[in-house]
Design a protein around this nucleic acid. Sequence first.
RNA 1: GCGGGUGUGGCGGAAUUGGCAGACGCGCUAGACUUAGGAUCUAGUGUUUUUAAACGUGGGGGUUCAAGUCCCUCCACCCGCACCA
Length: 805
Amino acid sequence: MSFNHNKIEEKWRNYWLNNKTFKSNSQTNKEKFYVLDMFPYPSGAGLHVGHPEGYTATDIISRMKRMQGYEVLHPMGWDAFGLPAEQYALDTGNDPEEFTKQNVNTFRRQIQELGFSYDWDREINTTDPSYYKWTQWIFLKLYEKGLAYIDEVPVNWCPALGTVLANEEVIDGKSERGGHPVVRKPMKQWMLKITAYADRLLDDLEELDWPESIKDMQRNWIGRSEGAEVQFEIADHEETFTVFTTRPDTLFGATYAVLAPEHPLVEKVTTPEQKEQVNQYIEKVTAKSDLERTDLAKEKTGVFTGAHAINPINGEKLPIWVADYVLMTYGSGAIMAVPAHDERDYEFAKKFDLKIVPVVEGGDVEKEAYTGDGKHINSDFLNGLNKEDGIRRAIDWLEENGKGEKKVTYRLRDWLFSRQRYWGEPIPIIHWEDGSMSAVSEDELPLELPKTTEIKPSGTGESPLANIDDWVNVVDPETGMNGRRETNTMPQWAGSCWYFLRFIDPDNDQKLADPEYLKKWLPIDVYIGGAEHAVLHLLYARFWHKFLYDIGVVPTKEPFQKLFNQGMILGENNEKMSKSKGNVVNPDDIVESHGADTLRLYEMFMGPLDASVAWSTNGLDGARRFLDRVWRLFITDDNQLSHKVVDSVTEDSLEKSYHETIKKVTENFEDLRFNTGISQMMVFINEAYKAEQISKDYAEGFVKILSPVAPHLAEELWEKLGHDESIAYEAWPAYDEAKLVENEVEIVIQVMGKVRAKMMVDKNASKEELEQQALENASIKERLEGKTVRKVIAVPGKLVNIVAN
RNA sequence: GCGGGUGUGGCGGAAUUGGCAGACGCGCUAGACUUAGGAUCUAGUGUUUUUAAACGUGGGGGUUCAAGUCCCUCCACCCGCACCA
């Protein structure tokens, strides 16, 4: 008979909640372990089967660590600000707050039904004023330190959403959410100076236990590159401009210069004859969206300005061009072009028939640009030097002559922190009528988001808050001066930049969190979530954490010591699950039909945690079948403990298998290799079915190691085994290494590397003994008939290989 | 183009320091129990051909007594970045 999952799961779910079984205590002397999930955005669609994958993984770790004697912090909360709720509210006329609340309730119910061992007393919600009070507080600290500033920048304006998007929210020229077109438009925006932390964000990656691919993506995103800044004078003009180059050694090979279309000097230096052409070009380029600009960039375009720059190293006149392959946002928005040794410059020079002068030996400039190393030529005092020495010598020359200096540039830009939306944290700043600006004082936090039914975009680019007069208008009580509140709100990333800190002390109204508790719990020992947050969330959170470290709020330089990215669960047809494809699996349905334990087990057994694997209904059935097998092994049809389970067995046939299982499962879970750990549990159950008797010790040990994966079933079995306390804090079983090796081991005998026979030998048999016994083996002897044994390799405990011909 | 990763049965996937390839699960086949069932139990299941053997971890080459694992080379697919000077 199979077990009734609905009944059992409900029973234990309520038991855990009512008893607060998983409440963590910040004041114990136990060693701590902080296991964190990336908290979800509570969408209207409810939980996706992808969510429980990571959540089960962290839950297994949490449950195992508790049983191993750790004090475990395993919390859950809601990243509930954001565009979808606002869009929904706009579409339906509902209140985003109300909508969010409903979604959170659904998510909570679904998550609780899966039996995750969260401490629900620590539940947090980023839209809760008592939470975003501290998000705003951190913003004020950033502002105080000059790390939050207003800048007029060309931003990604999305007319359909009525808001500005960060670069990373724009995919292929369209909004990440919704896929609406995006254009560039200059606007005043709040920026966070993440670039001030670029080097530390880069360097400190070294000490983190993260997947190398994620570290690489962050390195790539930060994009540190070393080189030099070089000053160029302009013939017949007062102005000079600066270029950034990683190859100052090729300065003698510079044959023209390029300014980005947005470069302020373009207008000034363009000659009257070229004016018309240049203006037309710039008009064309700025009208292009980012998408078109990169797309059409396959073919280089540009226009000569008529002006000439002076190469500082040899006084040569270089034509100055405007071209959109040079980006205003990187370096100084201007380059010196060395077509002989840069592929982009080469392509451009070929197209517009510009001079190409090789300065490094090794390539053939008739065919292509040569970017490799080699002896310098045509380069005066650099001649004969290699690339590395050439660069050093060139920088020395620039610095000695006041023409430039060594310089490090980053691809990382400052973080565009404003959103013209309603459903976000208000930025606590007031703009006064005299043009000054001041921060809302700390004791006035939280600056609450006003209730309103008018959340349509104002249309002007300002957020809907601009239309709420009694909120937006303020009067200074002392001076009587009129002011206007900042109407921009924070982006969705803000709340998730520090939520892991609030879990540590969620109800503190004096501080973001108690320093003692922060010291106890940080850093996070394991953080699991999807790879889609590889750069943005993880980089922003690291940035805020480092800042909080600098101002003495947190005790660690990095928040997430170990990071792991779970893979995706694909639809049964191997495609990404989506409503339109009709391949979505709803966790509620599975919990109802197969049970939460089955879903947990199945998702962990599908494959490695980081792999993307297609859902399989048959596989799910198989997972349930295993749990049924476990149940039937221990429990009879009339719901009693099986007679197979005895206090002391007459023959301990399971000894080796049991110890092997405990060892493997413990190690595999530790390494997040749940699929192999589960397969070992299956092996044990298969063995146990064959055994006449099962000792109660083994039965209990097995139920314990099963409990992190299938906690409801394990609690029920634990009770049947005669216990009246939860299994959650029972000691994790130990294994005996000595029991893993039997006295007799099977040794393989190979001839010429091919297995020809097997023999049982004493586990301590020496090389010589192995060799001798192998050569005496009857079938081997037969095989060696007429051959000469050249060599015998014996590996104790493994094999003997005989080389003969 | 650059960076990272992955290629193993019909399918998902296992495989310490190089040491019996295919654990475990799914599927399939046969048998048992059955008012013959989408239940359970037992056995089998990489491929080719008869036992025995040969061939087998994307392709090719190499190192080694021994290679899924190490080296070289090529190919395919996935993820990220994409004119970053």
